[in-house]
């Protein structure tokens, strides 16, 4: 116990640093996947068969394979197979590769949730917009969108909470996120080696952060309570 207290300041510092990387990956994934998911949803809903089938095919591939493998492919494929290591060897290259894999993966999940949300808005809403002379674009942004958002908050919340924990997968390409930082103390880091507790301790970071996320999402859901 004394030893742990002694190691604590160093470990917390390192874990914080790893957690910043975790948070960065989390935020950039949401920032990218929210809009990309909408574009993919429009693709699936397209009346043009080729577009709709192509997007459905992509969604099948992305949802049907492990995110961990997608990370490995995005990161290693250009260098090992195409002999064109576009990511470079550094942490920023790993981050970029991880971000792309995460954004595409989550966008596919989001797109299916969006699609369900859009389809659950009654057809009468669009018809009311049409007879008032609105364009399809105006109908989407001024009528459908907010009703869709209200309906998808609970399923999207689930995905967001999963994403917080999924960021740990980026460790597979040695992204220096919090699990990586915790594990480093086993092999040796910052003059500490053979310590297992930092790795276990990372769980608190996830737990606390997910608590904050849960409260924020509940607040957002309440914000949309003003209409039905």
């Amino acid at each position: 116990m004394e030893l742990i207290l002694q190691q604590m300041p160093v470990v917390i510092g390192a874990l914080n640093q790893g957690f910043i990387q975790t948070l960065k990956l989390f935020s950039i994934t949401l920032l990218g996947a929210f809009p990309l998911g909408l574009i993919i949803a429009f693709g699936t809903l397209s009346k043009i068969k080729i577009i709709s089938l192509t997007t459905q095919f992509i969604i099948w591939i992305i949802r049907g394979t492990p995110l961990m493998i997608q990370l490995l492919i995005v990161y290693y494929f250009p260098g090992l197979v195409l002999h064109n290591p576009i990511w470079g060897g550094g942490e920023s290259g790993r981050f970029l590769a991880a971000a792309i894999a995460f954004i595409v993966n989550y966008a596919c999940y989001f797109s299916e949730i969006y699609r369900g949300g859009i389809q659950s808005v009654p057809a009468g809403q669009q018809e009311a917009g049409l007879v008032l002379g609105l364009t399809k674009r105006q109908i989407f942004f001024h009528i459908t969108l907010l009703q869709m958002i209200k309906r998808i908050v609970p399923p999207i919340s689930n995905e967001i909470i999963t994403l917080v924990k999924d960021t740990a997968l980026a460790r597979i390409i040695a992204l220096q996120e919090i699990i990586w930082a915790g594990q480093a103390f086993m092999k040796g880091s910052h003059g500490i080696s053979g310590a297992v507790w930092p790795l276990f301790f990372t769980a608190f970071y996830y737990l606390i952060f997910n608590g904050i996320v849960t409260v924020a999402l509940a607040w957002f859901e309440r914000k949309l309570d003003y209409f039905r």
């Binding site: 009468g124 809403q125 018809e127 009311a128 049409l130 209200k150 039905r228």
Partner: peptide, 27 residues
């Protein structure tokens, strides 16, 4: 051309996220 006609629906189809006034003013 459809603006020559107005339509009142059986099921109202008001926009739920807007107040009565905003519903009228939207278009």
């Amino acid at each position: 051309k459809r603006l020559h006609f107005g339509l009142v629906f059986q099921s109202f189809n008001l926009f739920p996220q807007y107040t009565a006034l905003e519903n009228v003013m939207l278009a």
